[in-house]
Measured scan of single mutants.
Amino acid sequence: MKTQEELTEIVRDHFSDMGEIATLYVQVYESSLESLVGGVIFEDGRHYTFVYENEDLVYE
């Protein structure tokens, strides 16, 4: 089982391919040991929310 830090790094690596990240945040109250819920804001102003669970990243 991966730690929350490892899950965060996986998500950061994925989004870094889309541009320069200004902020990546995790909603700790919605996340667990198996899933990571949060959002990412890019330097150009784009903002996505995401759920990473079971090695699957869903964002909008």
Rank of each mutant, 00 (worst) to 15 (best):
Q4F: 11
V37M: 13
K2N: 05
R12V: 06
Y52N: 00
V40F: 02
E20C: 11
H14S: 08
R12E: 04
S35V: 13
T23D: 09
S32K: 10
L33N: 14
I10E: 07
L36N: 00
T49L: 12
E55S: 11
G45I: 02
E55V: 06
F50L: 01
Y59C: 06
S32E: 13
L36Y: 04
E9C: 09
E30F: 06
Y59K: 04
E6F: 08
Y59G: 03
E30H: 12
V51A: 08
K2D: 04
E5C: 12
D56Q: 12
V26D: 01
E55N: 14
Y52I: 06
V11H: 01
G19H: 03
L24W: 04
K2L: 09
N54Q: 09
E60V: 14
E55W: 09
G38N: 00
T8W: 08
E60R: 15
E34S: 14
R12N: 05
S35M: 13
E34F: 07
Q27Y: 11
Q27L: 15
S32Y: 10
S16D: 07
G38E: 01
N54M: 10
E55M: 13
F15R: 01
T8V: 10
I21L: 06
I21T: 02
I21M: 04
E5Y: 10
L24Q: 01
V40T: 03
S35W: 10
D17E: 15
Y48M: 07
V40I: 09
L7Y: 04
V28F: 12
V11F: 03
T3V: 05
E6L: 07
I41K: 06
S16L: 10
E9S: 12
V11G: 01
F42K: 00
M18P: 01
L36Q: 01
R46S: 08
Y48A: 02
M18W: 11
T3A: 05
N54D: 08
T8D: 03
E53V: 14
L7I: 12
T3L: 05
E30K: 11
K2G: 05
E60M: 13
E9G: 10
E55Q: 12
S35R: 15
E6Y: 08
Y48R: 00
M1V: 12
Y25H: 04
I41V: 09
G39P: 00
N54R: 10
D56G: 13
Y25D: 04
Y29P: 05
R46T: 07
T23K: 12
S35P: 04
V37G: 06
E6T: 06
V58Y: 13
V11P: 01
S31K: 11
L33P: 12
V40A: 03
Q27K: 14
F15V: 02
E20P: 10
I10F: 09
D56V: 15
G45K: 04
H47D: 03
T49G: 05
V40K: 00
D56W: 15
E5D: 10
L24I: 12
H14A: 13
I10K: 09
V28L: 13
K2I: 05
R12F: 08
T23V: 14
D13C: 12
V11C: 04
E20K: 15
T23G: 07
Y52H: 02
Y29D: 06
A22F: 08
H47M: 07
L33M: 13
D17L: 12
S16R: 12
E34M: 12
E34Y: 08
V58D: 07
D13W: 12
H14E: 05
L33Y: 11
V28T: 15
D56M: 15
V37R: 13
S32Q: 11
R12H: 06
L57V: 07
E55Y: 11
T23M: 11
T49N: 08
Q27N: 14
S32L: 11
R46P: 03
T23Y: 15
S35A: 07
D44M: 02
I10L: 11
E6G: 05
D17T: 15
E60Y: 11
E5S: 11
D56T: 15
I10P: 03
L33H: 13
F50M: 00
E34T: 11
T49R: 10
D13T: 14
E5A: 14
D44Q: 01
T8P: 02
E5R: 07
E9M: 12
S32T: 13
G19E: 01
T3Y: 04
E53M: 14
F50T: 00
Y29Q: 06
D17M: 14
G39D: 06
F15E: 01
Y59I: 09
Q4T: 06
S32A: 12
D17R: 14
S31F: 07
H14Q: 09
S31T: 09
F15K: 02
M18N: 03
Y52D: 00
L24M: 09
F50V: 01
H14W: 11
E20Y: 10
V11L: 07
H14T: 11
Y52F: 09
H47N: 04
G39M: 10
I41L: 08
M18C: 07
E6H: 08
K2R: 10
L7T: 03
F42Q: 00
D44V: 02
N54S: 09
E43D: 09
H14Y: 11
F42Y: 05
G45Q: 04
F15M: 06
L7E: 02
L36T: 02
G19M: 02
Y52V: 05
Y25Q: 04
G38I: 04
T3R: 06
G19P: 02
E53C: 10
L33F: 10
S31Y: 10
L33K: 14
Y52S: 02
V58T: 13
V51Q: 07
R46A: 07
M18G: 03
G38Y: 02
Y25M: 04
Y59W: 11
F15I: 03
S16Q: 11
Q27M: 13
I21Q: 01
E9K: 14
S31L: 08
V11Q: 00
F15Q: 01
E55F: 11
E20L: 12
T8H: 06
T23C: 13
E9N: 12
I41C: 07
L33V: 12
E6C: 07
T23A: 13
Y29W: 12
V28G: 09
V40D: 00
L36S: 01
V28Q: 14
M1N: 13
D44N: 06
H14I: 15
E30S: 13
D13V: 15
G19S: 03
E9A: 14
V51F: 10
T49H: 10
G45V: 01
A22L: 11
Y48F: 12
H47G: 04
Y59A: 05
T49W: 07
G19W: 03
Y52T: 02
F50S: 00
H14K: 13
D56I: 15
E43C: 12
M1L: 13
E5H: 11
F50I: 01
L57F: 07
G38D: 01
G38K: 00
Q27V: 15
G19T: 02
V58E: 07
A22E: 09
T8E: 14
F50P: 00
A22R: 15
R46W: 04
V37Q: 10
H47A: 07
L33T: 13
T8S: 09
R46K: 06
E6M: 09
E60T: 15
T23I: 12
Y29K: 05
E20V: 15
L7P: 01
F50G: 00
H47P: 00
S16P: 02
I10Y: 07
R12P: 01
E30P: 05
L33W: 10
D44R: 01
V26A: 04
K2H: 08
K2S: 06
E20R: 14
S31P: 14
F15C: 03
Y25G: 01
V40N: 00
Y52P: 00
F15P: 01
D17K: 15
S35E: 06
E53I: 15
V26C: 05
Y29I: 06
D17C: 14
E53W: 13
F42V: 00
V40Q: 00
Y29F: 10
I21P: 02
E43L: 15
V58K: 15
T23F: 13
D17Y: 14
Q4S: 06
V11I: 09
K2M: 09
G39W: 13
L24V: 09
F15S: 01
M1P: 12
D56Y: 15
V11T: 03
H47Y: 07
Q4M: 15
G38L: 03
V26Y: 05
V37E: 07
Y48D: 00
I21E: 01
L36A: 04
M1R: 10
V51D: 03
G19A: 04
K2T: 06
F42E: 00
H14L: 14
I21W: 03
M1Q: 14
G45L: 04
H14R: 13
Y29E: 06
I10H: 07
Y25L: 04
E53K: 14
D56N: 15
Q27C: 14
S32D: 11
